[in-house]
Design a protein around this nucleic acid. Sequence first.
DNA 1: GTGGTCTAGACCACG
DNA 2: GTGGTCTAGACCACC
Lengths: 129, 129, 129, 129
Amino acid sequence: MEFRIDRSSGLPAYLQLVRQVREALRLGWLGPGDRLPTVRDVVASSGVNANTVLKAYRELELSGLVEARQGSGTFVKAGLGSADPEVMAALRARLAGWVREAREAGLDTEDIDALVRSVLANGEGVAVA
Amino acid sequence: MEFRIDRSSGLPAYLQLVRQVREALRLGWLGPGDRLPTVRDVVASSGVNANTVLKAYRELELSGLVEARQGSGTFVKAGLGSADPEVMAALRARLAGWVREAREAGLDTEDIDALVRSVLANGEGVAVA
Amino acid sequence: MEFRIDRSSGLPAYLQLVRQVREALRLGWLGPGDRLPTVRDVVASSGVNANTVLKAYRELELSGLVEARQGSGTFVKAGLGSADPEVMAALRARLAGWVREAREAGLDTEDIDALVRSVLANGEGVAVA
Amino acid sequence: MEFRIDRSSGLPAYLQLVRQVREALRLGWLGPGDRLPTVRDVVASSGVNANTVLKAYRELELSGLVEARQGSGTFVKAGLGSADPEVMAALRARLAGWVREAREAGLDTEDIDALVRSVLANGEGVAVA
DNA sequence: GTGGTCTAGACCACG
DNA sequence: GTGGTCTAGACCACC
């Protein structure tokens, strides 16, 4: 697992890390027993400060998703995946098709993002946070 | 246009306002010449401080999207023009269908969000920001 | 770099700060990689409020000239590169000579300013802004 | 005399009007006895609100430069010109030559402006307000 | 100790 | 009544 920090997004770095771990769990890329990258690895690959990584891992531990084992690393305790991998793959493929069409219709990523958010916000015609 | 601020998202309130205006422009809900709600209206409807709204509006002005006219309001200057409304509507409908299926397969909103982000990030297997 | 705020000029303090940074870039006193004074330094040396400084620095950041790095300061990102320092020095010397003559002819600073502005406005006979 | 208002300069509109009248006096374009444009004319030609023009004229009257005569207009009372027109013309010509050179050396208007201001600020190496 | 966010409230410029 | 400026001060995120 590799982290990517977007300095200009306005979202605090430690929350971006937490979010990316949660997403990996959601998507089944990480599951119970897997080891997270060491703090040192994250520092090296993403450029954030070690304290920032520690804060993210601590937050994940507090929410019960991971477990730090002294001397051996941080491990995933619980999954967040809610669906069968095959179903996920099918949904993913169909979504990828939709994205391709949207792009062909001339929408750029920000357009697509806006559309997705507005649909998820439930057709109320108001985009959220 | 109505704003919604999510105090728990970690994203600064003024950035949420900026983002919502940009999304409205993307989706065609706002176009050149339209007037944004007055600062006072936003304060009344969303509960944020007036300066927070001013900061968001100023940021939009600096990026050339809107124009403040003293004494008369803040107006949209340029669109973030996406696509033909009909095409948008069709894409939206198909996306809504996909979301329905995903929900029926047991995915919750956070699952769907993670899936969308990972597809938009383009098959690289890393969710972003 | 030291800032000077003229409270009686009618120009908002934050715009004076922005302008002075831009001028320093124009004149080559600041270049890529240089660090701006910290917000606290500016507050101490110029007496303006910290938020006023932050607003100026943020405006510079939005226009792509500087970059704020949390915990370490605000740094110049791009130059507003003008000309070769030697050419600048020569032009400056000749201008200084002209100013001396103008003063000897009895013009005060406001006269000189008016004359410069009218010449820069390009023989149209109308001074601007 | 024609006024030009720059909405984006940050300087209040009424101060821009005051300044332009003062500059016209400095440069000898206006002299004692000349009539300023009527408020209505200024409104028509510059687009500002009538109250804004009135405020500017009132300010000029308070500083003793002009005089409002009920029913006939606003007239210049005192000059601000400090030098002989011929001397002014000579200085202006030499300055225009300098500006031409600066432009040929690749400086744009903002560069020139920065240089002029820094020289006027007296060689101290700090540009002012 | 760095920059950044937000609040509350006074006051100004403009229509 | 519109947007804009500035202040004072509390608190947060990050190094």
